[in-house]
Structure formats: C-alpha cells, structure tokens
Amino acid sequence: MEGIVLRRIDYGESDQIIKLFLKETGNISAIAKGIKRSKKRFPHRLEPFRVYDFTLRKRKPGQSLYLIQSADQIRDFEEIKEDIRKIALGNFILEILLIAVKESHPHPELYDFVLKTFRNLSESEGIFPLWFYVAIHVMGFLGFSPNFETCLKCKKPLQKTEKNLFNPARGGLVCQQCATLSKTDKTSVTSEALGVLQFLKKASFPAVPRIKLSSQTRTEIASLLTNFITYHLERPLKTLPFLQEVLLKKK
C-alpha cells in the first residue's frame, strides 16, 4: 500500500511506532519491529518526505496497530531535506495531516495533493506563496474551504478598495458595510493580501511560486491563515513557531 510517514516514535530498543498516511486508507498506526537493527527487512530508516510501498498486516483481529512487514521506497523528495525552510513547511503539512485526517478514513485526493506539494516544495524556491497555497487548499480538502470572494453576510462580491474584515471561525470576510454592524470580525485585510488570497484560492501549482509578496503582506497572510487553521483544528500547531522563526524572522 502506497503511503508516507507522518511521525515516528521510538518504542523499546529497536522498534518504532509509525503513523502513516496511506493513499487508500488514510491515517493508520503501525509498528516497525527491529527497524533500528534489521538492515535486511528495512534497508532504509523510514523517514518523512519519502513515498513507500508498504506491506502491512494486522497484528491481531480487532487491534488497530498494524505490523510493517516491509517498505520499498518509491520516491524520495530529498531536496526538502536540504533546506531548513522546506523542512519547516513540510513538518507543518505533516502536523495538519496528523491532526485532521481520521484513522482509516481514505483521502486519496488529499494524498495526491500532498505529493504534489512535496514535489513543488522540493523543486521550488518560492516558499511563502507555497505555504499559503497549501494551507488554503489542505484546509479545503478537510472541509474548511475559506471564502475570499463574497461577503459572508450580504453575499455581494468583496471590493478590494474597501476595508474588509476576516472572520477565522466562519472562514471568510465581511465587507465594509456589514462590518460596521459586526463586533466579532476584527482582522482587517489589506487589498494586496486579499488579491493574493483570491489568486491562490483559484490558482494551480505551476503559477504559485512566481507570486511576489512584500514582507508586510507575508506577515499579514501568515497571521490570518494561522488564526484560521488554529481555530478549525482546535489547537495551536506545534510546528508553527519553528516555521515562523525560519521564514519570518530576519537573521
């Protein structure tokens, strides 16, 4: 079964419990017995940002933990592991999948999207637009697609010239007129950020890395999407502080 590694936890002297995202069955937990010692069964350590063909079997009927009998590597996105910014973004994606994809719920379209993301991440230098693009679309696959086109209240198309406000809970914006009546929608969105968000929502991968963003817009969109994701996943993401440090902090 084709899949990727989301997280590994050491178990005993030489075993690991591994959370996998499989194309056919979604997330599952599996044990890799003797992975730290057996070069015969596992010629490579199982690592993130690689695609494997796993041979799995249930340990006992009724148990949720699978046994990994073998894992043949199909693809290695090794360029991700050569750039700390790409590693940070890759981990951010893995964490969303860990939290939001339920055990044994197939998500083949999301799986294909994640592989496309890894390919683009390994080949591209435009990290910021890719970060925002992936955040918008992964959340969409999980049922939280944000709306950047029309006002949440009056349903009229948003005007970039107006002061629109973002509501993370409802995943959209309210126009200037409706905002005067609202007390909850407080994050104002600049016209540049709104234009970028609208473009990213409709764009396909090849167009994404070419977008140029000012540092102000980067910070604004990062904050807006972070609030949106954190709200809907109902917890702060552990990978975000590191992602923000390597991408937003100037060294």
Partner: peptide, 18 residues
C-alpha cells in the same frame, strides 16, 4: 543523519553563518 538531525545541522549552519 536522519531527518531531524539533518534539520538541526541545517539550522545550526544558518545560525552560525555570521
């Protein structure tokens, strides 16, 4: 030389560059 060890080395490389 695993994923996290490599990430640590890359971060140090960046941090120690100055």
């Amino acid at each position: 030389p695993d994923a996290n060890g490599t990430a640590t080395a890359l971060y140090l490389q960046r941090r120690l560059k100055p």
